Amino acid sequence: MPTSRRAVAATTALIITLVCLASGTAPATADPPADPSATQAPSGRGSDPGPDAFRDMLVGQLPALPATAQAAQQAQAGRPATAARAPHRTHRPARAPHGKGTTDDAPASAAPRIFTGLGFDTCTAPSLDDLKVWRRSSPYGAIGVYIGGRNRACAQPRLTAGWVRSATAQGWGVLPLYVGSQAPCLDPGPTSARSSRIDPRRATATGSADGADAARAAGALGLASSSPVYLDMEAYTRTGSSCSTAVMQYTAAWSKAVRAAGFLAGFYSANAGIADLSAVALQRGESSPAVADVVWYARWDARARTDGYGVLRRGLWADHRRVHQYQGNVEEKHGGVTLQIDRNAVDAPVAVVRSASTRARRRQLR
């Protein structure tokens, strides 16, 4: 049954209020995020235990982030960039989104590598020969690859540290995706029956474990500090508070573990996932548990832009912190090579590969 706008607004308001209670701050006066029913998700059920149970589950259970990460969330402002088939640009801004970073390849203040332009994601990493052809003949300059997770559905016979180094050397910006535990109220889909879902009683513990696993997977592929890792939370129906609570608890714990390893915490979702994340992010006081550094939102509206239309307010994740999956499950042919892809507009961090000297030092330590 479709969720009414009134129910969506009530749930959003409740999440915001409870985040305030957990952080000891006053509720923000900003408008609520866009109605998630306006988004077009790629892929309903859920029970609502009532506001008292929701409060008991949420208050105090979203892990607090380091102050540097909180400051980064406070600094999100300005107009979001667009990626409407503009020339690809990759650069390193003067300042990193947050100061957390402990890997040995770069200082803690190392800036991320930002890509602005068009990208695509595909189930299995293509061959390097195919990537070389697409780099020359396609409009794309970034590629999303699935690096791990208990719900990753695709085999990755080619995905190694060498593949990542070579793809980056070809000029690709790599967007690492991790398919962890999914929402208890996951929408029906081809693989939903087999998907491992979040147990609300263990959401925080599972998020911590999955986040540590995501960091290990990223490190094994040679990704350096300040690289993003994007949590893939597939579409779910926001019909009640218990599912939203479990997803946000899991995501906050996952993000904390990823950041502890020196990576940026990204979040991919559609509809309810982005609405729930936005509700939390609207509270950006110093002690507010903002849950993601970068957002990758799925709205299949054929608009190759990252302006957040129908999904995100202007000030949320607006400073080189957005990816928009604007079309999915399309077949494209460039230079004689055909791939099935999802299309994305990107204005966000991409992977940074560890330097040769760092790789040599790590080999010596083994």
Results as ranks from 00 to 15, higher is better:
347 D>V: 02
93 P>F: 01
314 R>G: 00
197 R>C: 00
264 L>M: 11
267 F>S: 10
95 R>D: 00
169 A>S: 06
73 Q>R: 15
283 Q>C: 04
176 P>R: 13
223 L>H: 14
267 F>R: 10
332 E>R: 15
271 N>A: 13
79 R>E: 07
261 A>C: 04
58 L>E: 02
38 A>Y: 02
52 D>C: 01
251 T>V: 05
184 P>Y: 14
167 A>M: 13
357 S>E: 10
344 N>D: 05
329 N>W: 03
20 C>N: 11
113 R>H: 04
182 Q>T: 09
245 T>R: 15
4 S>R: 15
323 V>I: 10
324 H>V: 01
58 L>K: 05
347 D>E: 03
232 D>T: 04
132 K>A: 14
205 A>S: 12
312 L>Y: 04
183 A>P: 06
57 M>D: 12
98 H>D: 08
241 S>C: 01
183 A>I: 11
38 A>V: 01
190 P>S: 02
127 S>M: 00
174 V>W: 02
301 D>V: 02
183 A>S: 15
210 D>K: 15
231 L>A: 09
62 L>K: 09
275 A>S: 12
88 H>K: 02
188 P>C: 00
170 Q>M: 13
232 D>H: 08
89 R>K: 12
15 I>P: 07
213 D>G: 08
332 E>S: 10
53 A>L: 06
84 A>I: 05
50 G>E: 07
346 V>Y: 07
61 Q>K: 11
126 P>N: 14
134 W>P: 01
234 E>V: 03
347 D>Y: 03
234 E>R: 13
96 A>Y: 10
122 T>C: 07
9 A>Q: 10
255 S>I: 00
242 S>D: 12
143 I>N: 06
185 C>K: 09
133 V>M: 06
186 L>T: 03
18 L>R: 01
65 L>Y: 06
350 V>W: 00
80 P>H: 14
289 P>F: 02
280 V>A: 08
300 W>V: 01
215 A>N: 14
168 T>S: 06
66 P>I: 03
171 G>W: 02
211 G>N: 07
156 Q>D: 09
324 H>A: 01
38 A>G: 06
360 A>V: 04
91 H>N: 10
106 A>Y: 03
143 I>F: 02
111 A>L: 08
213 D>Q: 10
330 V>G: 12
297 Y>T: 07
337 V>S: 13
34 A>S: 08
339 L>R: 15
214 A>E: 12
31 D>M: 12
138 S>A: 05
253 A>I: 05
227 S>F: 12
118 L>Q: 15
86 A>V: 14
286 E>I: 07
225 S>E: 11
201 R>W: 09
251 T>K: 08
167 A>V: 13
251 T>E: 03
96 A>V: 14
214 A>I: 15
252 A>S: 13
362 R>Q: 15
278 S>C: 15
49 P>W: 06
19 V>C: 11
187 D>I: 02
161 A>V: 11
228 P>N: 05
289 P>S: 06
82 T>W: 09
127 S>Q: 03
229 V>C: 10
254 W>Y: 05
313 R>E: 01
336 G>S: 07
169 A>K: 11
62 L>A: 11
256 K>F: 00
71 A>D: 04
254 W>C: 04
43 S>L: 03
98 H>E: 03
171 G>M: 07
77 A>I: 02
208 S>H: 08
33 P>Y: 11
269 S>E: 01
136 R>F: 00
140 Y>Q: 05
155 A>R: 14
144 G>I: 10
125 A>D: 04
38 A>P: 00
276 D>M: 08
50 G>R: 09
309 Y>K: 12
115 F>K: 15
319 D>M: 04
